[in-house]
């Protein structure tokens, strides 16, 4: 069991009894739920406790919190313009949630919240839902022009179905990208870790050889740190781009 690299993605109840049930589905307090709580509490603390408004020269923690804040704000400004800032709390939450989930998952024996397709797909669905609601609220039925690019009518026969399909694949690509990246990275780490154990336990020359996968783990870990940040960034910037389409349709701000 310890050698199964997929075992780390198992969602297991920490409390044997279900807490309650919704529509006949039992709700458990799982290892994933625990880490979701850890993630949101640390993200909330990171962005509140470190910040003191009277400080002219920020502390290290405040500086990092401010950088995260400005990073997300600039991301929104550059993709959506100033009027996109109404989505700031949502996108900041999305970015922080994914970023902290990804980074917490890198700590050994933790659970990676974003390595579950259910979580990433739910997040992506919320994004698409917000986009659709915004689009119809802002443009009414004119939002459907999203599927009609500026092109001659005979091309539209071909382009409109393509636009609709590409719109429908958005939640899928958005969720699968994050989920697969997290899953692949952690699986790779687990596989190399099991190599270390197997080689080390084999004894003799093979024990010495176990240093090779160990070094690889270090390298992959560094790569995974980059991927963790990058995927959080990609997830939020794609959200910005989608919401920008809902706000401004085809015209660029």
């Amino acid at each position: 069991m310890a050698m199964n690299p997929m075992e780390q993605f198992e969602v297991k109840p920490l409390i044997a009894e279900p807490l309650f049930s919704i529509g006949g589905h039992p709700i458990y307090f799982t290892n994933q739920a625990l880490f979701m709580c850890v993630v949101v509490v640390s993200a909330a603390l990171f962005l509140t406790l470190t910040v003191s408004k009277g400080r002219l020269v920020p502390s290290r923690g405040q500086s990092m919190a401010e950088v995260s804040y400005e990073f997300v704000a600039n991301m929104i400004r550059s993709t959506m313009g100033e009027d996109g800032l109404v989505f700031f709390p949502f996108i900041l939450t999305l970015f922080m949630f994914v970023l902290f989930s990804n980074f917490f998952g890198l700590i050994p024996w933790t659970f990676t919240v974003t390595s579950q397709i259910a979580v990433t797909f739910a997040l992506a669905s919320v994004v698409i839902l917000v986009m659709i609601v915004t689009g119809f609220m802002k443009h009414g039925l004119g939002f459907l022009m999203l599927f009609v690019p500026k092109a001659p009518w005979y091309l539209l026969i071909l382009l409109v179905p393509i636009e609709i399909i590409s719109f429908l694949t958005r939640p899928v690509s958005l969720s699968v990208r994050l989920f697969a990246n997290m899953l692949a990275g952690h699986t790779l780490l687990a596989v190399f870790a099991s190599f270390v154990i197997l080689l080390g336990a084999a004894g003799g020359v093979l024990s010495v050889l176990s240093i090779a996968p160990l070094l690889l783990i270090v390298a992959i870990f560094a790569l995974e740190m980059l991927v963790s940040f990058l995927q959080a960034y990609v997830f939020s910037i794609l959200t910005c781009i989608y919401l920008n389409e809902a706000l401004h349709l085809h015209d660029h701000h």
């Binding site: 979701m36 939450t93 949630f97």
Partner: peptide
């Protein structure tokens, strides 16, 4: 595991959203 996942995601995400907002 999906119902539990979605439930806890909703709760924690909403909590973080309200705190950050």
């Amino acid at each position: 595991s999906f119902p539990s996942q979605i439930f806890w995601l909703t709760v924690t995400f909403a909590f973080l959203f309200v705190v950050l907002w």
